[in-house]
């Protein structure tokens, strides 16, 4: 970097960038501090980014004494894993078929897929469908409705379009059928784009709460971390005053729903932070790939 004098302009820029960093990070740090602070002490206020009365009680409550929250945690993980794997299998397979311009139904399948980006039945018909399929309070409701996204399929397909065809051609000469070509040749070549889509799917699955709210509210076993957080939010979002009534047995101990809420928030954010470096790397390449194409 060339050495240059700092002008007033540079100072203003630096200050505004630091401001941006602070307003983005402060809330997360604040919530982390509260989640690590004694709940009774937190109520006195004044916690910023450092806990005053350090304790793990809030996390112990989630992972130790409260079965429901622990179960929600595992359900979140389960749906993320299953949903991501199922979504990847479905979208790569469909993308491969669509990348084969010689397939007799290529146009038809492509049209059926692309149209879904522009039309949607809406909330109520979708709800009725899920009901009629018997997916209410069923684990399948986390997987089936979100199996394929046209956007993801199109990203994978454009990646496949740019693969060299030589390997595929020679495999075909050797008499390999299309499914073998797909699993043995195409998939290994597509691993970068598969990783990208897997990350997107995983983030989407991990962050979902509305499907639990609408379709799986009746099942204790299917509750997720995001949904539990949403429920606490729903009960206590006006002020911290009236939450004492909702969960008396928790209050008795070291902690209260307000502080547990913060701990859940942190637990629900950490996986995002863990995949964040990868997310960033891949989606930037994804964006540039798209830019080159257009």
């Amino acid at each position: 970097m060339k050495k240059r004098k700092w002008t007033k302009f540079d100072i203003i820029l630096t200050i505004s960038m630091l401001f941006m960093i602070v307003i983005t990070l402060y809330p997360f740090l604040n919530i982390l501090a509260i989640s690590l602070n004694n709940a009774v002490d937190t109520a006195k206020g004044g916690i910023h980014i450092w806990p005053r009365d350090f304790t793990f009680a809030n996390y112990q409550e989630i992972f130790g004494s409260n079965d429901k929250l622990l179960q929600a945690f595992f359900m979140s993980i389960l749906r993320t894993i299953v949903g991501t794997i199922a979504g990847i299998i479905a979208s790569t397979m469909l993308a491969y078929v669509l990348s084969r311009r010689d397939f007799v139904f290529n146009g038809l399948v492509g049209l059926l897929l692309v149209l879904t980006m522009f039309i949607s039945g809406g909330l109520i018909p979708e709800y009725m469908l899920i009901r009629q399929l018997g997916l209410i309070n069923d684990f399948g409701v986390y997987i089936w409705p979100m199996l394929i996204s046209a956007f993801n399929v199109i990203i994978i397909r454009s990646f496949m379009d740019n693969l060299p065809t030589a390997l595929e051609e020679s495999a075909k000469m050797d008499g390999a059928n299309d499914f073998v070509i797909f699993t043995k040749i195409i998939i290994p070549l597509c691993l970068p784009v598969i990783a990208t889509i897997a990350l997107f799917l995983a983030v989407m699955q991990w962050n979902s709460w509305f499907d639990t709210y609408l379709y799986a509210r009746g099942s204790e076993a299917l509750t997720t971390l995001q949904f539990e957080l949403m429920k606490i939010l729903d009960n206590a979002n006006i002020s911290s005053g009236d939450i004492t009534s909702q969960n008396a047995e928790v209050i008795a101990g070291q902690t209260n729903p307000q502080s547990i809420k913060m701990a859940i928030t942190i637990i629900a954010t950490v996986p995002i932070l863990m995949v964040y470096p990868f997310l960033q790397k891949y989606f930037v390449t994804g964006l540039t790939l798209g830019a080159v194409k257009s």
Binding site: N30, S208, L233, T265, L279
Partner: peptide, 17 residues
């Protein structure tokens, strides 16, 4: 970063702040 966290978390953050 905030783009990747769910609205449930953001709502919690906003309400807390």
């Amino acid at each position: 970063l905030p783009h990747f966290v769910s609205w449930v978390i953001v709502a919690n953050i906003v309400i807390t702040m």
